[in-house]
C-alpha cells in the first residue's frame, strides 16, 4: 500500500460507517482467513512441524539427514538440472515467440489466439501431455514412424524419450507458453519512441538492442527464467506419467514416500523433502519478485 493512497481511502471510507464499528469491519475478512488458515497455512505448518519431529517424537533435524543420501541427492540434482535446462530453453524460445506476438497487431486475431492457446497449454501437463508426445515421437508415434518410413531413425543410440532428456523436451511444451504469458508485458512496455530516439541519435539496430532494448528487457527475462525454473521444479504429473523409473526427480521421491511402505514408516522424511522443495522454490521466486520490481519501474 502506498502512503499517498491510503489516507484518502480511509477518509473516504469513513462516511460509509466504518470508523464506529471497527470490529464488524474485520468480520468481512474472517471467512477468507479461516479458509486459507485451514487449507493453506495449516498444511504449510504441518510440513514445517512434521519435518522437525523425529521418528522418536522429539524435535530434531534427523529427517533432514534422511535427505542426505546419494539417491535423494541425485533426485534433487536431476530436478535442478532439468528445471534449469527447460527454463533456459523455454525462456529463449518463449521470448522469441513473445516477440513475434508483441510486434503484431495488439488487438489482432493472431495475438488473441496465441495468448488463449498459451493460457491452456501453460497449464497443460501430466498424462495428456505425455500422451501427446508418445503419440508424436514415441516408438509408435506419428512423427517417429513417418521419419522411419523416410529412412531416418530417431533413436539410433537407444530411446532417450522415456528418460530425463524426454522429460526436458516435454517440459518445453508448457514452459514456452508460460514464458510467452509472463514475458509479453515486458515487451509491451517497450515504447516505439525508444527505437526512434535511438535512430535519430545516430544508433542502428545493433545499438538499439545492445544499449536500449537488451538492458531494459534483461532483468525481466532473467526473472521470467527463474519463474520457469520454479514451474519445472514443482511439476510432478508429467514426470509421474512419463518416467517408468520411480524417484528420479525430487517430486517423485515425495510421491514414493507418500505412497510406499517406507514412507509411512518415516512420515517426517516426506515433510522434510517437501520443505526442501519449498525452500528452493521460495528462493527462486523471491529473486523473481525482486527482478520484476526493477522491471516494472522501467517498463510501465
Amino acid at each position: 500500500m502506498t502512503a499517498a493512497g491510503n489516507p484518502a481511502f480511509n477518509a473516504a471510507a469513513r462516511p460509509l460507517g466504518g470508523g464506529r464499528r471497527l470490529p464488524l469491519t474485520w468480520l468481512g475478512v474472517v471467512p477468507f482467513f479461516i479458509y486459507v488458515g485451514i487449507f493453506l497455512l495449516l498444511p504449510t505448518a504441518i510440513i514445517l512441524a512434521g519435518s522437525l519431529i523425529g521418528p522418536d517424537g522429539s524435535i530434531s533435524l534427523s529427517n533432514f539427514e534422511g535427505i542426505n543420501k546419494p539417491y535423494m541427492y541425485k533426485s534433487f540434482t536431476n530436478s535442478i538440472e532439468i528445471s534449469t535446462i527447460s527454463a533456459v530453453l523455454g525462456a529463449i524460445f518463449g521470448a522469441l515467440l513473445a516477440y513475434a506476438v508483441a510486434t503484431g497487431d495488439p488487438k489482432g486475431f493472431l495475438r488473441r489466439s496465441v495468448m488463449s492457446a498459451a493460457g491452456v497449454v501453460a497449464q497443460f501437463g501430466g498424462v495428456t501431455l505425455t500422451f501427446a508426445f508418445v503419440a508424436t515421437i514415441g516408438t509408435e508415434g506419428f512423427v517417429y514412424l513417418w521419419l522411419q518410413q523416410h529412412g531416418i531413425e530417431m533413436y539410433p543410440n537407444g530411446v532417450w524419450f522415456f528418460d530425463l532428456p524426454g522429460l526436458t523436451l516435454i517440459y518445453l511444451y508448457f514452459q514456452i507458453p508460460l514464458m510467452v504469458l509472463v514475458f509479453i508485458p515486458a515487451l509491451d512496455g517497450i515504447r516505439p519512441q525508444w527505437r526512434e530516439a535511438t535512430e535519430s541519435l545516430g544508433g542502428n539496430a545493433w545499438h538499439y538492442w545492445r544499449y536500449v532494448a537488451g538492458p531494459l528487457l534483461f532483468p525481466s527475462f532473467l526473472g521470467c527464467t527463474l519463474l520457469l525454473f520454479a514451474n519445472a521444479f514443482s511439476a510432478y504429473a508429467t514426470a509421474a506419467a512419463l518416467l517408468t523409473q520411480g524417484g528420479v526427480i525430487a517430486p517423485l521421491q515425495v510421491q514414493a514416500l507418500l505412497t510406499s511402505e517406507t514412507g509411512s514408516s518415516a512420515p517426517g522424511l516426506a515433510k522434510a523433502l517437501a520443505l526442501a522443495m519449498v525452500a528452493v522454490v521460495l528462493v527462486v521466486m523471491s529473486l523473481y519478485a525482486l527482478l520484476q520490481r526493477r522491471t516494472s519501474q522501467w517498463l510501465r
Binding site: 515504447r191 525508444w194 526512434e196 530516439a197 535519430s200
Partner: peptide
C-alpha cells in the same frame, strides 16, 4: 538517408527517455 544518418534532434511527445 536513414534516421540515424540525418543528424536530426528529435523530441517526442512523452516517455522517450531511456528508463534504465
Amino acid at each position: 538517408l536513414g534516421a540515424n544518418k540525418r543528424d536530426v534532434g528529435m523530441v517526442f511527445q512523452a516517455y522517450s527517455l531511456f528508463p534504465h
